[in-house]
C-alpha cells in the first residue's frame, strides 16, 4: 500500500508532464525535449516566491499562509512557463514547421540544452531546497500512512486532468485543437488560425508543467537544474506508454510508470532505487518494439 501511494503521487506528477509532451506531439508531431526543462524553470520560479511567502524556519505554517503561498507560486509558475513555452515555439519551432521532421527534433534537443545551461547559470549545479510551505500531517488509509501533501498532489493532478479533458472535448478552442491535430490544412480552411492554436497548445501544456513543478517541489523538497530533464524522460516514456498524442493515454501512462518505479524502488530492501531508471527505460524500448501505438493507441489518429 505504501508503494501504491508513493507510486500514485509520482505517477500523478509524471502524468501532468506527460500531457505536455503528448499535446505538442498530437498537434505538430514533435517531441518537445525542452518540455522537461520548462518544468524545472517552473520550479525555479516558485522557489523564491515560496521563500518570500513562508517563514523558512517555521515548521508550523498556518494553513491560510500555505494556501496563499502555494496559490501564488502555482499561478506565477504556470504563467511564466506558459509564456516560455509559447516563446520557444515561436522562435525555435515555427520557422521549421515545414522542414523535414528531423530538423525540429534536433532543434528541440538544442533548446533543451540551452535551457538547462541557462538554469545551471541561474541556480548553480546543486539542488535548491525549498522551505516547508505546508506543515506535514499524516493520515492513515487502509493501514498505510499518507501525508497531506501526497493527498494534495493526487487531488490537484486529478483536477488538472479533468479540467484539461473538459477543455479539449467541450470548448470551441479544444475542438479547434483536435481539428488542427487531425488535418492542419483542412482545419485552416475552416477558418481556424493554425498558428494561434499551436501557440495555445504550447501555452496550456507548459502552464500545466509549471503548475506541476510547484507540486513536485512541495513533495520532493528540492530541485536541481537537470531534475526536469530526467523527470521529462520518464514523462515521455509515460506518454509513449499511453499512446503518444493521446491525452487520456498520457494520464494512464503517467500513473502506470509511477507505480512501476515506486514498486521497483521498494524491492530488495532499498537497493531497488538503483534499478528503477533502467527498468523504466527498458519499458520504453519494449513498448516501442512491441506496441508502438501505446496502451490506448488503437485509434492511432486520435491525436490531441
Amino acid at each position: 500500500m505504501d508503494v501504491i501511494i508513493a507510486g500514485l503521487v509520482l505517477g500523478a506528477l509524471y502524468a501532468i508532464v506527460a500531457l505536455g509532451y503528448t499535446m505538442v506531439y498530437g498537434i505538430i508531431e514533435l517531441i518537445n525535449f525542452a518540455h522537461g526543462d520548462v518544468f524545472t524553470f517552473g520550479a525555479f520560479v516558485a522557489i523564491p516566491i515560496l521563500n518570500r511567502l513562508v517563514n523558512q524556519n517555521d515548521f508550523n505554517v498556518p494553513v491560510g499562509q500555505s494556501i496563499f503561498a502555494v496559490t501564488v507560486s502555482v499561478l506565477a509558475a504556470a504563467a511564466l512557463c506558459g509564456i516560455l513555452g509559447v516563446v520557444i515555439e515561436r522562435i525555435a519551432y515555427r520557422p521549421l514547421r515545414n522542414a523535414p521532421r528531423l530538423a525540429p527534433l534536433i532543434t528541440a534537443i538544442g533548446v533543451s540544452l540551452i535551457l538547462e545551461n541557462a538554469l545551471f547559470q541561474w541556480q548553480g549545479g546543486l539542488p535548491v531546497f525549498t522551505p516547508v510551505a505546508i506543515s506535514r500531517s499524516t493520515y492513515t488509509i487502509l493501514g498505510s500512512p499518507i501525508t497531506n501533501v501526497q493527498i494534495l498532489v493526487i487531488v490537484v493532478a486529478i483536477l488538472m486532468m479533468v479540467a484539461l479533458d473538459l477543455f479539449i472535448n467541450r470548448t470551441n478552442l479544444g475542438k479547434a485543437m483536435r481539428a488542427v491535430a487531425q488535418d492542419r490544412e483542412a482545419a485552416s480552411m475552416m477558418g481556424i488560425n493554425v498558428d494561434r492554436i499551436i501557440a495555445v497548445t504550447f501555452l496550456v501544456g507548459s502552464a500545466l508543467a509549471g503548475a506541476g513543478a510547484v507540486f513536485y517541489l512541495l513533495y520532493e523538497g528540492s530541485v536541481g537544474y537537470n531534475s526536469g530533464f530526467t523527470l521529462g524522460l520518464f514523462a515521455f516514456t509515460a506518454a509513449v506508454l499511453g499512446g503518444i498524442g493521446n491525452i487520456r493515454g498520457a494520464m494512464l501512462g503517467g500513473i502506470v510508470i509511477g507505480l512501476i518505479s515506486s514498486w521497483i524502488e521498494s524491492l530488495g530492501n532499498g537497493s531497488g532505487t538503483e534499478w528503477y531508471e533502467p527498468v523504466i527505460f527498458a519499458t520504453l524500448v519494449l513498448i516501442l518494439v512491441f506496441r508502438p501505438a501505446g496502451l490506448l493507441g488503437t485509434n492511432t489518429t486520435e491525436k490531441v
Binding site: K175, R178, A179, Q182, D183, A186, N299, T301
Partner: peptide, 8 residues
C-alpha cells in the same frame, strides 16, 4: 478527396 475530421 474527402477531408473530414474522422474522429470527431
Amino acid at each position: 478527396t474527402l477531408r473530414l475530421f474522422d474522429n470527431m
